[in-house]
Amino acid sequence: MNYIEHIGKYYLMLKQVFRKPQKKRVFYDALLREIEELGLKSIGIILFISFFIGGVIALQTALNLDSPFIPESLIGFAAKRSIILEFAPTFCSIILAGKVGSYITSSIGTMRVTEQIDALEVMGINSLNHLVLPKVIATVTFYPFLITLGMVLGMFGGWLAGVLSGLFSGISYIEGLQTDFNPFLITYALIKTLVFAFLIATVPSYHGYYVKGGSIAVGKASTQSVVWTTILIVITNYLLTQMLLT
């Protein structure tokens, strides 16, 4: 199948996904389950990675700005910019594409190969709407909080790294964080997060839903979905940056 066919099939899938849920009660139950599965269970890894990467960003910035003519507060300023603009929304989304994307593809793919999706269709249930919509809503609503947490933890990690290493003072780091604060950068990061969250839910769902074969096919589809979600995140990241910041 060529790329154009995949794109067409993906949009046809979205058309089925964005229908009114057949039963609100069942939809809300599914939504809460997905928020727990795709969101709450990802908090740990995002906080852990954000904290340490934030520390690394601050340390590397400090080591590369080793000049008496550059104010120390620039370390906090640069770390803040890096974390808010790129690290939290893009890097964390790529991590989520790996963690959540493979989970989505394998769970939907397994449902496909074990005829659970056929069972839904026979009952008269729009399986795409039933399976994918709660995932989309869960990621799109929850990931902005998750990424915001990532930003905060990343900046905190940078501060702690400076204090513990003695490479820069905590006060100058905080001063840098407060310098030239532009709220639009947060908006930009959250817009990116929303788009990435949508991709993280829908691209792996597409790979899982249309899988053919058995367990090996599901495994391959999981790998492909992570690769394609990452590629799409990187491309949309470039396009959104071009559109929103230039």
């Binding site: 397994t110 449902m111 074990t114 005829e115 659970q116 056929d118 069972a119 026979v122 009952m123 008269g124």
Partner: peptide, 18 residues
Amino acid sequence: RQWRQEVGMVFQGSALFD
């Protein structure tokens, strides 16, 4: 939709939601 509710299906592998 109405007809679907009149149909019951037992799949080869049971197809229970695991």
